[in-house]
Design a protein around this nucleic acid. Structure first.
Lengths: 235, 235
DNA sequence: TCAAAAGTGTTTTTTTTACACCCATGC
DNA sequence: GCATGGGTGTAAAAAAAACACTTTTGA
């Protein structure tokens, strides 16, 4: 491999914003850094991309390594690349390709084997607590997530494979911070081509009371475009 | 500056997809490469990011250098980063931060001073003519552009500072490939908060015939979110 | 005065919203 | 039976679509 030195040298990292709903609270995964730039501070999981490694493969690997989050069909999309010249002055020119991932709460609650100090922080309680430009990255990720709920099947990524429409509705309500009419929500989802499909089974509500709800599964594999957007259903 | 060599070394480039409408035909700017990987082939304008240079500054500089396109308030947004390990095997690991830019046709038609061989190609006539992974980048850019017409003021970026609503409508029609009802379009645009504002002047149509149209200017600086989306106005 | 292009009005259709009501279950 | 949450019906309101019609200009 030929490295001509006529061009400046960069290091490339990936940072991953992993979002989940912990009891209805939008939360992001953070790790406490033990290496020196910003050692001891909180940051997004991430790290250097290896030789011959794809950008999203690096994100997947670091996520598994640092936090134990490892899924076969993990929703992971590129968010944006952050490359301000002074964003990591101690280590040279470091460009970070940020990724966004959304996982179901139960998965989030079971830390894997190699988990160091990884913790879920409600995004509302993160005014400026993260190292580097990670607060900016987190903000961008949240904005993108809110927007994508409207025109993709992303909401289902916060839930397990099978879910009730009430659970799905509560994803929207939690993230948008507004209440949705249950009846109208029901119709919109059922009428959206290719969004969800019934499993034929039902599940009783956690309290045990009330009519059992039908179970659905996502038809689109999680974050694809919807035929028609959902338009923030009103109260 | 300290370069530890424990992490792999990357080169970072920017590639820019510049779109315009040449007589109603969506066209992208391409350059003929004179350096060796893929010398003689067509490619997107772009090049290596310099030391201490911001990613979008690099895109702006390369665009001006290679093609003579230089605007004070150039619409330029990050599209996506392409970093497959084998995307440029001859030069090592090269990651490209692709950008998207939209400029008015007249500006496109006047090549600047340092223009090498830069040419506008109708995007429909580019099945797979570009070097590297630039066909993929172009496809992504076009998809993004089509989508953004719906919910941002991006359409105005294809036009000069002052334009008629018929001109604006023809931007949508050209890019979406469908006809729009002139009356309904008029109303939608006028009723969209913060989209356009009248200049108070009028302009006769190119043929000279017909009632002169009111002139408008973009209120939102070109690619920001609209209060309410435009929903592909129908025939 | 006629054709052409801009712009307005008006009706029909569709979608969204609000909210009443019925259904299925556990206690 | 009754409280609770799931799910359906329906009428009012708003938005979108279709299209007729008026306006302003040059030839």
């Amino acid at each position: 491999m030929v490295y001509t030195s006529e061009h400046p040298i960069f290091y490339v990292t990936t940072d991953i914003v992993v979002l989940t709903l912990m009891d209805g609270v939008l939360s992001a995964l953070a790790v406490r850094r033990d290496e020196d730039p910003h050692a001891g501070e909180l940051a997004l999981p991430g790290g250097f991309v290896r030789e011959g490694e794809d950008l999203d493969a690096a994100a997947r690997r670091r996520l598994a390594d640092e936090t134990g989050v490892e899924v076969d069909e993990l929703v992971l999309e590129q968010l944006r690349t952050y490359g301000a010249p002074d964003r990591d002055p101690t280590r040279g020119r470091v460009v970070s390709v940020a990724h966004l991932s959304v996982i179901p709460a139960p998965l989030a609650a079971s830390p894997g084997a190699r988990t160091r100090e990884a913790l879920w922080l409600p995004v509302a309680e993160l005014p400026g607590t993260l190292a580097f430009d990670h607060n900016q990255i987190l903000d961008d990720a949240i904005e993108r997530t809110k927007a994508k709920l409207e025109y993709t099947a992303l909401a289902t990524s916060f839930l397990d494979a099978e879910f009730t429409l009430a659970e799905l509705r509560s994803v929207y309500e939690s993230i948008w911070g507004s209440e949705l009419d249950p009846g109208n929500f029901q119709r919109k989802i059922r009428n959206s081509e290719d969004f969800v499909e019934p499993t034929g089974q039902t599940r009783r509500s956690p309290s045990g009371r009330g009519r059992p709800a039908e179970l659905f599964r996502a038809r689109k594999r999680r974050t694809e475009q919807l035929a028609s957007p959902l338009t923030r259903v009103a109260l």
